[in-house]
Amino acid sequence: MNFSAARAVTAIGGEAVTVAGERALCDPRGTLFFPDLSLLAVSDLHLEKGSSFARRGALIPPYDTAATLARLETVIADYQPRIVVSLGDSFHDGKGAERLHPDFRLRLGELMTGRDWFWIAGNHDPEAPADLPGETVLELAVGAVLFRHEPSKLRVEGEIAGHLHPCARIVQRGRSVRRRCFAGDGTRLIMPAFGAYTGSLNVLDRAYQGLFRRETLMAYMLGAERVFAISGAMLRPG
């Protein structure tokens, strides 16, 4: 298992990190895999965001759930994890799971079969999703790490959170490049949003204040085929 995961690592172009001593791999598609735990974490799927907007008159294409699911399927196929943790805001709103098209419900069910699946409660979806298996929890401790949706204001060793949708920006040769990213300082890691319609917020924004030690902050920026580790000193706001 570990061996095959390690092979996947090189093929996928991920970046190895450690959080509270636990080895993990940041995947360029925005997921986090713990080979020793055979655990895949994915954050802020925001499924059914399109239909959530449509309810309010913005008829954006209804294909975001399909796109997000398709990507999730390939990641799960690559890693074959025993445990999947969806780090909250799995649905864009409380009624999202109800609006899920039957085909997508079926596909999601297939993904969940044969593995432990945890829905961490998020601010968008505090309740368990309607008619879906898996266990809904507020937070989850596995090994040395603790999964929860919103990062706590206290300094918590080994916390893996989502919620903030981090992205990072660098300027190189007079050109600006902004990408979603994992943001971590060795103690805590905040995951990028995975959903097809999810935007992002710069890690230097005020919302992240007090979450990281600035000296050791790293942004793992998502490239097309690999993850780029950029030190906090090189990052730009905005």
Binding site: P61, Y63, A196, Y197, T198, G199, S200, L201
Partner: peptide, 20 residues
């Protein structure tokens, strides 16, 4: 209101192009 709230046109474009 922040970038996380709105849906950017680029994301919509990518999704629409691959699905329709």
């Amino acid at each position: 209101s922040g970038r996380q709230v709105t849906v950017s046109a680029d994301l919509i474009y990518d999704v629409l192009r691959s699905h329709e």
